[in-house]
């Protein structure tokens, strides 16, 4: 009996398979990108410039001491309560006349802020504060702003602010980017991020 011969493996399509794999990996690999909290530092000011006068009730003071404890408006506070407190302060809208806030949902407490556009959050650190606490505080304060902006965007346009921002930054977004930009700016103007950081003491 003749020996059975193995049929030759057709290698002609190997290149196709190789290219298929190559393209698959090219499409699916995303190179890991870093994420983080973006902030803008204030430019260095002239010593001679008079600081503007701000009403005490429009300032929300957050002090972090060297033992990573928080003092918010002269009251000790836990980090988990900070977001709600900041939202309450920013959205208070007690102003009347020129300072009146037509879109605020807050309690209109006369001892708290007049208008979100006037409200300033002031953050003071100690030099011995740990970075982890600082980032937590920053995160909660940014979250408070984002929460208010989300609410405003939801009311005006039925969409989250964060969602709109993501769409705006997405190069594949099929929509009108200009109106989107206008809307984003409008929401931003309603709740501008006014977060001032003092030089740390101690």
């Amino acid at each position: 009996m003749a020996k059975r011969t193995a049929p030759e493996v057709n290698a002609g399509s190997m290149a196709d398979i190789a290219f298929l794999l190559l393209i698959f990996f090219l499409v699916t690999t995303t190179i890991e990108t870093d994420k983080g909290i973006s902030r803008k530092l204030p430019p260095i000011q002239d010593e001679n410039v008079e600081p503007p006068i701000i009403k005490q009730k429009n300032i929300f003071t957050v002090i972090v001491n060297r033992d990573n404890q928080l003092l918010v408006e002269d009251q000790p506070m836990k980090i988990k309560d900070l977001r709600a407190a900041a939202v309450k302060f920013l959205d208070n809208g007690a102003g009347v006349g020129e300072d009146a806030c037509s879109y605020c949902q807050g309690a209109k407490d006369p001892s708290s802020s007049d208008n979100p556009t006037k409200a300033i959050i002031s953050l003071v650190n100690d030099r011995k504060t740990e970075y982890r606490t600082y980032i937590s505080v920053q995160n909660e304060l940014v979250a408070a702003y984002n929460e208010l902006r989300n609410q405003a965007a939801q009311r005006l346009y039925g969409k989250d602010y964060i969602q709109m921002e993501n769409n705006y930054n997405d190069p594949n977004f099929r929509g009108n980017k200009e109106t989107l930009k206008e809307r984003l700016d409008k929401v931003k103007d309603m709740y501008p991020q006014k977060l001032s950081e003092a030089e740390p003491k101690g």
């Binding site: 983080g36 909290i37 803008k40």
Partner: peptide, 14 residues
């Protein structure tokens, strides 16, 4: 960074 006018910063986090 303020002195060098590199004002855009990002605190990289997880």
């Amino acid at each position: 960074l303020r002195k060098a006018e590199a004002l855009k910063i990002n605190y990289t986090t997880k």
